[in-house]
C-alpha cells in the first residue's frame, strides 16, 4: 500500500519501497560529517555576531537584525540538522504552515492590541481614576 500522490520521500520509490540504487539498509540520506561540523561552526559564528550586534544601537533596525540572524540560524538547523533539504518537501510544508499560522495569530492579535492601548493609557493617567489601586 504505497501512497505516492503527495510524495513523502524525495527520491523515487521502487519495488519494495527502497529507492533505486540504494542499498537495502538506506532508509534516508546520511548527513556527511563535514556538513554537520560546518553548520555547527556557522551557528557559533552567527551567535557571536548577534551578541556583537547587540552592542550597537541601530534604532528600529535592532529587532530586525536580531531576528534576521536568528532566522538564518534556524534555517540552517532546519535544513541540515533536521534534514529538510534532503527530505520530502511535504515535511517542510508542514513546518512552514506552522510558521504561517503563527504569523497570522501574532499579526491580527497585535493589530488589535496595539490599537486599543490609547484607551488603557487614558484610564491609567486620568486623575483619581482609582484604576489599579495598589
Amino acid at each position: 500500500m504505497q501512497s505516492i500522490d503527495l510524495p513523502l520521500e524525495s527520491s523515487p520509490v521502487g519495488a519494495g519501497g527502497y529507492a533505486a540504487g540504494e542499498g537495502r539498509g538506506e532508509l534516508a540520506h546520511v548527513m556527511p560529517a563535514r556538513v554537520l561540523v560546518a553548520v555547527f561552526a556557522a551557528l557559533i559564528l552567527l551567535t557571536i555576531l548577534t551578541v556583537a550586534a547587540a552592542r550597537f544601537d541601530l534604532g528600529p533596525a535592532n529587532l530586525t537584525v536580531a531576528l534576521g540572524i536568528a532566522t538564518v540560524k534556524a534555517t540552517l538547523v532546519a535544513l541540515y540538522f533536521m534534514h529538510l533539504r534532503y527530505d520530502s518537501p511535504f515535511n517542510a510544508l508542514v513546518f512552514v504552515t506552522a510558521l504561517v499560522f503563527l504569523a497570522l495569530f501574532l499579526s491580527l492579535t497585535m493589530l488589535d492590541a496595539v490599537q486599543y492601548q490609547p484607551d488603557i493609557r487614558s484610564y491609567e493617567t486620568a486623575p483619581d481614576s482609582g484604576f489599579l489601586a495598589h
Partner: peptide, 10 residues
C-alpha cells in the same frame, strides 16, 4: 520499512 519511516517522520 520506508513507508513506516516516512509515516513516523511525518
Amino acid at each position: 520499512p520506508r513507508q513506516q519511516f516516512a509515516a513516523g517522520k511525518l
